[in-house]
């Protein structure tokens, strides 16, 4: 078995100068297996464009998902990827980020993955303000399991698990994220891809936990929340004169639902340090993952002295 020596403290390698990025640099050889017309195609394209336009290199980015239709995304983008367990993307993503804080981390998934089975991690990753971007492709239904109610399914919605209509109240992810401690909270719509690119670029550049909830219609199982449903209703917050630094207005806009449904950046603050910035262990020495293993003789001596 070959042994690879422990790396000296290093950084994520810069790409050779000869490597030219182009629009296709983030395309993967695997084509998405989503249904034709699925909103997730647009989210994938927007993410690829955002990464390209930000000048990021594919090997410097890790896209980490849970399980579900939308969670197949890492397999369709040319970056490092992890396709983890149902609901666990944020916990895994936090581990990757803390081990190598020089990587750009994008977590992706659906509403069931993030707000249902993964709800606990969602709450705690927000309050920790981990520097990563979380994109939820919110189709208000469980698609991969062929159409059951989700945490964001509207009250009254008929699904295969609520044939008489959903009697439960849905989660509203926007106020939840604002209250939960996310420091960049936005909503996009698959039908407005250019707008979504700008939201994602803002999210990826944001230092701290950025959350982008995207209306990403399921054309197969959700007959209520379709492109036709959203198209006439969505209004860009920037066109509505919204100030994303105003907490109370952000909450009001978050609760707005009806003939006008706002999309855009609801809430943003830059005055809080991210988790990596708050943890002195990361102050110097580069990514933990590439630091020399073990402790010095002096450190060992000190540990033993405590025991005597």
């Amino acid at each position: 078995m070959s042994t690879v020596v422990d790396p000296s403290p290093g950084t994520v390698a810069a790409a050779p100068a000869s490597a030219e990025l182009n629009k296709d640099s983030f395309k993967n050889k695997v084509h998405p297996d989503w249904c034709p017309g699925c909103g997730d195609f647009s989210v994938l394209a927007a993410l690829q464009t955002a990464l390209f336009e930000l000048g990021l290199k594919p090997h410097q980015v890790v896209v980490i998902s849970g399980i579900g239709c939308s969670s197949n995304l890492p397999g369709f983008i040319n970056t490092y990827g992890m396709h983890t367990l149902h609901g666990r993307s944020l916990a895994v993503a936090t581990g990757v980020k803390l081990a190598n804080h020089e990587l750009k981390i994008i977590a992706t998934g659906g509403d069931g993955d993030g707000f249902g089975i993964g709800g606990n991690h969602f709450m705690h990753t927000m309050r920790r303000n981990v520097d990563l971007t979380y994109i939820v492709m919110d189709n208000q239904i469980y698609g991969l399991t062929t159409g059951q109610t989700s945490p964001t399914s509207r009250k009254g919605m008929k699904t295969k698990s609520t044939p008489h209509g959903n009697v439960e109240n849905p989660i509203n992810p926007i106020p939840l994220a604002i209250v939960g401690g996310a420091t960049y909270v936005a909503r996009g719509f698959s039908g407005k891809q250019k707008h979504l690119v700008e939201l994602l670029k803002g999210a990826i550049q944001h230092k701290g936990f950025s959350f982008v909830d995207v209306f990403s219609p399921c054309v197969t199982y959700n007959k209520d929340n379709t492109y036709q449903f959203f198209n006439p209703k969505v209004k860009a917050l920037e066109d509505l004169g919204h100030d994303p630094s105003d907490l109370h207005k952000a909450m009001d806009r978050g609760y707005q639902w009806g003939e006008e449904i706002p999309i855009g950046v609801f809430w943003k603050r830059t005055d809080l340090p991210s988790l990596e910035e708050s943890e002195p262990v990361l102050d110097e020495g580069g990514p933990l993952a590439f630091r020399q293993l073990g402790i010095s003789d002096e450190q060992a001596k000190a540990l033993i002295a405590e025991l005597l």
Binding site: I64, A91, G95, H121, L288, I295
Partner: peptide, 29 residues
Amino acid sequence: ARQLGIMVRQVEDEIGVMNMVIGAAHAGC
């Protein structure tokens, strides 16, 4: 942790613990 340069985290539950540990290990720690 601080004297030895170890990242120590108390996580919301053990599900999160193991998944976070896997993330860190995957990255090389």
